[in-house]
């Protein structure tokens, strides 16, 4: 839902980032307002997963220049846990298994951390169980998964449902979903996407990172961005995703080559 007067939740400006000594993001610009659903598409290695991890504050990634403002605040100055408490959520492409830590307790501690930030009271075990049982419905998840260790022995689909369950409990304002569709069969994809649709409101925003168009058949984006070589090459509406599906990513290479040529041509001038 595009409303030009909606709150500007996330503002990414000329973001550059590295992992180890490898530059990955090379000038990403993106603005996300409340109510919007954005999709970032691109080939493997285009930097789309890096973008999601940088936004969530993964310690292996280093921002070298540029800025990210979240509701006007400098997001990059905050540790990962504070970003999460303030409402930035990352749905992992490969959710981590944590043996010995009960899923239920993990969900409760996380939910209470977010509630504390919002000035809401902490939920005790009983109140939390009521809440979690209600939110399980969003992803049609079996309550038995609450008793197990976090993601341990979960199938790919169960892990992704557990991610969306966390999103349902944390009620983020910006949800970044990194390849949430990967490894899902069509039924699981429908359930997970259905969960995302149920959670999308006029007050929050979703950033879908995806490789394929099929996720966008079930979640309709307001904007589609094509990422290549660490920046957003083109932005359009949902029809851009269809175009990509039809034409593949080859045209991206051509566009990129043309862009680099013109940049190289410009460089001597700038130096002069």
């Amino acid at each position: 839902m595009i409303r030009p007067d909606a709150e500007l939740l996330l503002q990414i400006t000329d973001l550059h980032a590295r992992v180890e000594d490898q530059p990955i993001l090379k000038g990403v610009n993106l603005e996300i307002r409340a109510g919007e659903i954005h999709a970032v598409m691109g080939r493997n290695g285009s930097g789309k997963s890096t973008l999601s991890k940088v936004l969530a504050g993964h310690p292996s990634y280093r921002v070298t220049s540029g800025s990210v403002r979240y509701r006007g605040e400098d997001l990059l100055a905050l540790p990962p846990e504070e970003r999460a408490r303030m409402g930035v959520f990352l749905g992992f492409q490969y959710p981590i298994e944590i043996p010995g830590v009960s899923n239920l307790e993990f969900l409760r501690v996380a939910t209470n951390a977010r509630r504390g930030q919002k000035g809401q009271e902490e939920l005790d075990t009983f109140a939390f169980e009521d809440l979690v049982n209600e939110r399980l419905k969003v992803v049609q998840m079996d309550p038995a998964f609450l008793e197990r260790s976090v993601n341990e022995g979960f199938s790919g689909g169960e892990k992704k449902r557990n991610e969306i369950l966390q999103m349902a409990l944390l009620e983020p304002l910006v949800a970044i979903l990194d390849e949430t569709d990967s490894g899902l069969d069509i039924d699981a994809l429908r359930i997970v996407a259905g969960g995302v649709n149920q959670l999308a409101t006029a007050d929050n925003a979703t950033l879908l990172i995806t490789h394929y168009q099929r996720l966008l058949e079930v979640i309709t984006p307001d904007y589609v961005h094509v990422m290549a070589a660490g920046r957003i090459l083109r932005t359009g509406g949902k029809e851009l995703a269809l175009e990509l599906e039809e034409r593949g990513y080859d045209w991206v290479d051509e566009e990129l080559a043309a862009l680099e040529l013109s940049e190289n041509a410009r460089t001597p001038l700038e130096v002069a």
């Binding site: 969530a56 504050g57 993964h58 310690p59 292996s60 540790p79 990962p80 846990e81 504070e82 970003r83 999460a84 408490r85 959520f89 990352l90 992992f92 959710p95 981590i96 944590i98 993990f106 501690v109 996380a110 951390a113 977010r114 930030q117 966390q166 944390l170």
Partner: peptide, 13 residues
């Protein structure tokens, strides 16, 4: 590191 980050990314210090 990945386990720590996963928990942190859910608001757990």
């Amino acid at each position: 590191l990945d386990e720590l980050f996963y928990l942190q990314s859910r608001g757990i210090d």
